[in-house]
Amino acid sequence: MNTTPAVLVRDLHKHYGAKRAVDGLDLTVHPGEIFAVLGPNGAGKTTTIEILEGYRDRDRGEVAVLGVDPQRADRRWRSRIGIVLQSADDQAELTVRELVHHVALYYPRPRDPEQLIDAVGLSAKASTRVRQLSGGQRRRLDVALGIVGRPELLFLDEPTTGFDPEARRSFWELLLGLRDEGTTILLTTHYLDEAEHLADRVAVVRDGRVVALDAPAALGGRATHEALVRWQEDGVTRERRTPTPTALVGELARRFAPDEVPGLAVLRPTLEDVYLEMVGEAPRASAGDTTVSTPLEEAVR
């Protein structure tokens, strides 16, 4: 099995004037995993991913994508990666079929365009001009164009922004299917549920560096965090934080036996709770950057 990391980033820096967009970021993505990068706007997610894609040069640090420095990208390397950019409204006058068939020509061993159009659920729209597609259809076309060359590594920058819940679900199925085929996927997202559902591992980025990295279920010590036990007693709601909720529940069970403990609940922090805790303070070094929204806004989007 291939053990070279799909993406290896060490001490990456990228500054725009005084603004440190990326400020000492480290990242390792293993082959075959779905890796999500979470973080508020302005945290450096897009800058980082565009450095990995070969669009931007870095100021400092080490970067290897499929073993190659993206600043020395050649055609061969570009044929091994797939890119789905944040937003796209280009090629509006071509049909879905024309565009997928055309882009397939660029690659040495493309997927079958008709099967691919079918796989992303656009068969009914194959003869439709791109300008007439809905946002979700357009995005699925973008993914089709990103994977038509059978990339070993697929980059997705905020792929489901603006999707309705159903479209997101089917989009997630598509990505999980690609992962099962062996495609490594690196995605950025605003959505915590998206990261939780899709990602094998999640990195939280803030102020241009990784502040937490783990499986979604374990992020920020979620699994081992103190639990909150809540129940009703004497007509009021009682709550107690404890590292040993099992013992407390046992004690409550004995106290109320043989009745049920009224309103019993054992609560652990959600991914959203730990995320908000991590990005909770106003980001430093970005005063005057109007694109930075508060973490709360971010989380409720």
């Binding site: 660029y106 061993r109 099967q115 992303v120 495609t183």
Partner: peptide
């Protein structure tokens, strides 16, 4: 959409020797 795994032809192990399409044909 859930049939994506079977509908997309599965990739053959990474071949780095595949010929890239000729520039003139792409032009």
């Amino acid at each position: 959409m859930s049939t994506v795994t079977s509908a997309v032809p599965s990739p053959v192990p990474a071949p780095h020797h595949d010929r890239l399409p000729p520039t003139l044909r792409l032009a």
